[in-house]
């Protein structure tokens, strides 16, 4: 059985990493990666010659229109899809080894809670699978439900929760086994804007507290700029990386930062990059 890290929580006031010139280890290293889906009529190139290095502790957003391969790229990192060519390592391991070592927590677009389990038992699902002892499972479930503000809902069933609450449970579930790496595939895509803003703030605090590496797929520019330390702009047909934009807003930012010139400048750069990807499309 895999031993679990328990030392992830660090003090909130520890400094955020500067994204480029630090010497943290590389968490994800992708070189010349391509992936082609074979379909009935013609092969579809989902990813074409992708190069990307992500350091431990970074918050990297993948942004782009539908079909740009951002979800596919994340699924490759998670060993849910196999690349056709190129190299990728996750924490220095192949994606499959990393998956077997339970190196990452994955948050899907939908909460994917099991309807027959209460919130608490949904949280304990990965812990049961990984062989964590029962008392520790209970403690972790309590701790992470508290963290996402749902400790009063522990014994409710998923259908008794709103969509936003369900997604918070799924985030707590991904955190519960304390992976160093969090892969989040449009986790707030289906939520209303108010809930989304609220969860964005919570996620930012969480990232600052835990110093995890987060890869975050979105197609919302404000969301990406608000959360990220770097933004990877992708474009479709074939899916590729257009531009990587640094994004170093102050660590203690709140949603108000979205009114500042710095924020708007970065958002503008992202928008321009996205538009460049689309110009020869239609």
């Amino acid at each position: 059985m895999q031993t679990l890290r328990t030392d992830t929580t660090m003090s909130a006031d520890s400094l955020r990493p500067a994204s480029r010139e630090d010497n943290r280890p590389v968490a994800i290293d992708i070189r010349d990666l391509s992936l082609t889906f074979r379909t009935a009529d013609a092969p579809v190139t989902a990813l074409s010659n992708v190069d990307l290095q992500i350091r431990a502790g970074e918050f990297v957003s993948l942004i782009g229109p539908s079909g740009c391969g951002k979800t596919t790229l994340m699924r490759v990192m998670a060993d849910l899809a196999r690349p056709t060519s190129g190299h990728i390592t996750v924490n220095g391991l192949s994606p499959e080894q990393a998956r077997l070592a339970r190196a990452y927590g994955y948050v899907f677009q939908a909460p994917a809670l099991y309807p027959w389990r209460s919130v608490r038992r949904n949280l304990m699902l990965p812990l049961e699978i990984m062989g964590v002892p029962a008392s520790e499972r209970e403690a972790r479930a309590a701790r992470y439900l508290e963290m996402v503000g749902l400790k009063d809902f522990a014994n409710k069933f998923p259908w008794q929760l709103s969509g936003g609450m369900q997604q918070r449970v799924s985030i707590a579930r991904a955190l519960s086994f304390e992976p160093k790496l969090l892969l989040m595939d449009e986790p707030f895509g289906a939520l209303d804007e108010i809930t989304r803003d609220h969860l964005n703030e919570q996620l930012l605090r969480l990232w600052e507290q835990t110093q995890k590496t987060v890869i975050f797929v979105t197609h919302s520019i404000p969301e990406a700029v608000f959360l990220s330390s770097r933004i990877v702009v992708m474009s479709p047909r074939p899916g590729r990386i257009l531009e990587v934009i640094d994004c170093n807003l102050p660590p203690d930012r709140t949603l108000d930062v979205r009114e500042t010139p710095e924020f708007l400048t970065i958002a503008h750069r992202v928008r321009v990059a996205l538009r460049a990807g689309h110009s020869y499309d239609d």
């Binding site: 998670a78 060993d79 849910l80 998956r99 077997l100 339970r102 990452y104 927590g105 994955y106 899907f108 994917a112 699902l125 990965p126 699978i129 990984m130 086994f177």
Partner: peptide, 8 residues
């Protein structure tokens, strides 16, 4: 997929 990410 969720089960797969846990390598169940």
């Amino acid at each position: 997929d969720l089960m797969r990410t846990y390598s169940a």
